[in-house]
Write a protein that binds this DNA or RNA. Structure first.
Lengths: 187, 187
DNA sequence: ATCGTTGCAAACGTTTTGCATAAGG
DNA sequence: CCTTATGCAAAACGTTTGCAACGAT
């Protein structure tokens, strides 16, 4: 495999200032009253689409735990061809796209693949990406959102969201520094 | 073509606070005394690599003007097969990767392709991405860099840089809003 | 009965590779 | 000369598509 899969850890220690409550209008997430499943059903209905077994199965899996994943990782967790709830690769891709359209998931690109994460009902956050262990760590900062809103306003840019990834070395990897040391990582 | 090519405009109106001078240690760019070409020569020497005609030609092209580009866009500007300074596609890809390794270029992914931009000697900045006209606009904010450094420190994360893209609609497209209006953009 | 959805296979677009030849040092 | 770099062709990668069969409404 070329690019390593990405694992996830949540680091939710609020970083600074204002607690995350009133999610901001243009850059934050939206308060929630339905479950993802209900929300998706509504979405499908509103567009004359059908609530199939595969879609039901996938949404259940995807929202059963909070984790970042890509299409491959999701497929790996699903029943194999021949087993009861098999879902084909194209359908997985198609359905993930629908989840994004429906506002249930957000996606971003990392190492040449699309990574998905919960959006619906999940607070705005950004990521640290450890270039050593390839873990993706979440962090929240209302200050970033506010700062970006201000900057966007100054530039007359109508912001609809942002993608921010801070690259570097996570605490864990920093500590292991002198452990194995293969050849010396290019920085 | 699947994903639209990305054009670039620079919007360097400083957004707030501190002027960009002392580029910060871990997240900013580094002050410069050599030209990109000299710097690359040094890099090659230090690794026992060769300064070939193709590399010289490419670095000259890439640094002749400041613009974002992807491999395709670069290839389009280069001489065709048969012409004097033809450089093959694999070599373009290999060389771009070297430029990144050498610290001359930075790259990020957009719509499933790698986009490159000057790094060496170019100040830290981030981007607005207009989802309507697919233009990439630069903006600079020292405040973001500082905020991220603080957040990283709080999380014991050793930051080595970041990627930030604010998505939305640029001023120009906002004004044209009611002009054509194809179907109503999904938000 | 209709029309959206699925699985399959095969395509796609971007990037990478193996290898023989060319050329820098 | 020795080794790295190049160009070619072909592969690999993640993702998407056309289409016939299927299934929800």
């Amino acid at each position: 495999m070329n690019s390593p899969n990405v694992s996830i850890q949540i680091s939710s220690q609020e970083t600074s200032e204002i607690p995350d409550s009133q999610a901001s209008e243009s850059l934050g997430s939206v308060p929630v009253s339905m479950s993802p499943i209900e929300r998706f059903e509504e979405y499908l209905q509103s567009r004359g689409q059908r609530n199939t077994e595969q879609r039901r199965f996938l949404i259940e899996r995807v929202f059963s735990h909070h984790e970042h994943f890509d299409a491959d990782q999701l497929m790996d967790q699903l029943p194999r061809k021949g087993s009861p709830n098999y879902v084909s690769r194209p359908t997985v891709y198609r359905t993930l796209k629908e989840f994004v359209d429906a506002g249930l998931l957000r996606s971003f690109e990392l190492n040449g693949r699309s990574v998905y994460e919960h959006d619906y009902g999940y607070p705005q956050h950004d990521h640290f990406y450890c270039t050593k262990c390839h873990k993706l760590l979440e962090f929240r900062s209302e200050a970033i959102t506010q700062l970006l809103e201000e900057i966007a306003k100054n530039h007359k840019f109508r912001a609809r969201g942002h993608r921010l990834t801070v690259n570097g070395i996570c605490d864990e990897c920093s500590k292991q520094r002198s452990r194995v040391r293969r050849s010396q990582d290019r920085v």
